[in-house]
């Protein structure tokens, strides 16, 4: 077998193991499914009722941003899973086997796609219940969901890398939030980027959370008619920019993470 085929086979073995764990530890799955519902209801009602947007429902406007933000939070599971495997010595076991060095991480990020799909599905249903509607075409909606899931996959790789550089499971959540919070709040999720002060505005314009949100809003047809056109290139071309960011993030962080994995041992 070629080394690429071998690496894929190893990845499948690791992913299968993770899937078994998803089934056996339903508590994790429950949490994965409840928190998106909570996010949609919380942000949808707390913020959604507070602000009036002319000609449209603010809640509907918010949903795409909540999707993008929530899948990013969900990606912390990738980091937690890897940090746990390290703590329990399973990573050392894997590293002593003649398997592909990338397979443990690739298997983890692959199996976490299941969490993301379920989480997005739950959010979409909750959103529909509270009044969100897909007003674009079916195909556009599929592209929007696809983009959100690809974004989640890319963030999983970021979290995988973070998990390998932090010393223990206890700090992984704090470390992830240091990445997640700026990304999710210095964005167009809740407020228009134009209202942010200078440097924050630039950050928000190039923030992938903003562009994924913008893309999804456009594709779902959730942009109110007469809303101002964004000035920044990433927000004007949100699908292209988001895809570029996703490809770059996966390339960079998978390389960093795999390199790190090959040197890391349990402390």
């Amino acid at each position: 077998m070629s080394s690429v085929a071998q690496a894929l086979a190893d990845t499948a073995v690791v992913a299968k193991r993770n899937v078994i764990k998803i089934r056996r530890v339903p508590e994790v799955l429950t949490f994965v499914l409840i928190s998106p519902i909570m996010f949609v209801l919380l942000f949808g009602y707390v913020f959604g009722n507070a602000i009036e947007v002319a000609g449209s429902s603010y809640r509907e406007f918010l949903i795409a941003g909540i999707f993008a933000q929530t899948v990013m939070f969900g990606a912390t599971f990738t980091g937690v899973g890897i940090a746990e495997d390290m703590e329990k010595g399973i990573i050392n076991r894997f590293r002593s086997l003649p398997m592909a060095g990338s397979a443990v991480l690739a298997g983890r990020t692959a199996s976490d796609v299941i969490y993301n799909v379920l989480s997005v599905a739950v959010m979409a249903i909750t959103g529909l219940i509270v009044g969100w509607r897909i007003r674009g075409s079916f195909l556009d909606a599929v592209v929007a969901f696809g983009l959100i899931l690809l974004f989640a996959y890319a963030v999983s790789w970021v979290m995988a890398y973070i998990a390998l550089i932090v010393p223990s499971v206890e700090v992984i959540n704090n470390a992830s939030f240091m990445v997640i919070f700026p990304l999710s709040f210095i964005a167009n999720t809740f407020v228009p980027v134009e209202d942010l002060p200078g440097p924050l505005q630039t950050f928000a314009e190039w923030n992938p959370v903003s562009t994924v949100t913008q893309a999804a809003r456009e594709l779902f047809g959730n942009i109110p008619p007469g809303a101002p056109q964004p000035d920044a290139w990433p927000l004007q071309n949100p699908v292209i920019y988001s895809l570029l960011w996703i490809v770059a993030a996966v390339a960079v962080f998978s390389t960093l993470a795999v390199r790190r994995y090959q040197r890391v041992t349990k402390n």
Partner: peptide
């Protein structure tokens, strides 16, 4: 490919069964 390692901390997966652990390791030894 030529060694086996059993560590100080029993590095088996707690959630998997004994069979699943060994089968997985066998697959990863190709």
């Amino acid at each position: 490919r030529r060694i086996g390692l059993s560590g100080q901390y029993a590095a088996v997966d707690e959630v998997l069964s004994g069979y699943e652990n060994l089968e997985m390791i066998g697959r990863l030894y190709h």
